[in-house]
Design a protein around this nucleic acid. Sequence first.
DNA 1: TGCGCGCTATCGTCTTGCGAGGCACAATGA
DNA 2: TCATTGTGCCTCGCAAGACGATAGCGCGCA
Lengths: 108, 108
Amino acid sequence: MDRELLKGSTPLLLLSLLSEAPMYGYQIIETVRQRTGGTYTVKEGALYPALHKLEAAEFITSYWETQQNGRERRYYAIQPAGQAFLKAKKKEWNQFVDMVEAFVGPKA
Amino acid sequence: MDRELLKGSTPLLLLSLLSEAPMYGYQIIETVRQRTGGTYTVKEGALYPALHKLEAAEFITSYWETQQNGRERRYYAIQPAGQAFLKAKKKEWNQFVDMVEAFVGPKA
DNA sequence: TGCGCGCTATCGTCTTGCGAGGCACAATGA
DNA sequence: TCATTGTGCCTCGCAAGACGATAGCGCGCA
């Protein structure tokens, strides 16, 4: 998959995922990999900066959670402002798809 | 419209447009502007570099044409290799849309 | 002891779109 | 006559994002 197409879609994906449930980094990577059947993998180098940016904007929060084995994980959870932002992003996404399809022709 | 989403979609749009008919730069800009009802405008700073790159890859060719008033226009026309590339790009585009929708939910 | 895995994260590089700018000539109109 | 607008080509420096590489650390297992 062409990497350039992905640009800008990462926050949308992240927010969508987190709106289902709080998740930690590694889990996000695995979930995306599995749900796309392996065709797409989020790379750490894209994930963490995006997550941090979302957090700085207060669209998500993070907290550490200790597992039974004593190890820690950092969970990320969506915030109300993030929900609103997600909604706007979805709309934008649909507009974008419609726009491209106006030139390329419908998906079918 | 978020500029970041656009990244990577430009070659697809350009090739799609040129597969309809050869066009010159200014015409491409105007066509895109009109067909999207003004919501999206290709900028020269994005257009020409993209066009030149497509030409360097031999997906399109260009030729100058003189108008009645003596002025010149550079037309860009798609090549067979460009048609093939366009086909592949379209497929990739559809995969990309499906992928995002697998997280965001269907458009409707 | 050493390897791989789960899990965190950063850095430099590359590509892309954008805004701003430059150049040239035609047509319009005050 | 001269200024403005529109047509038409193009380049440069910047910001943002994804990528590959890299790093660290504790655990379980052979």
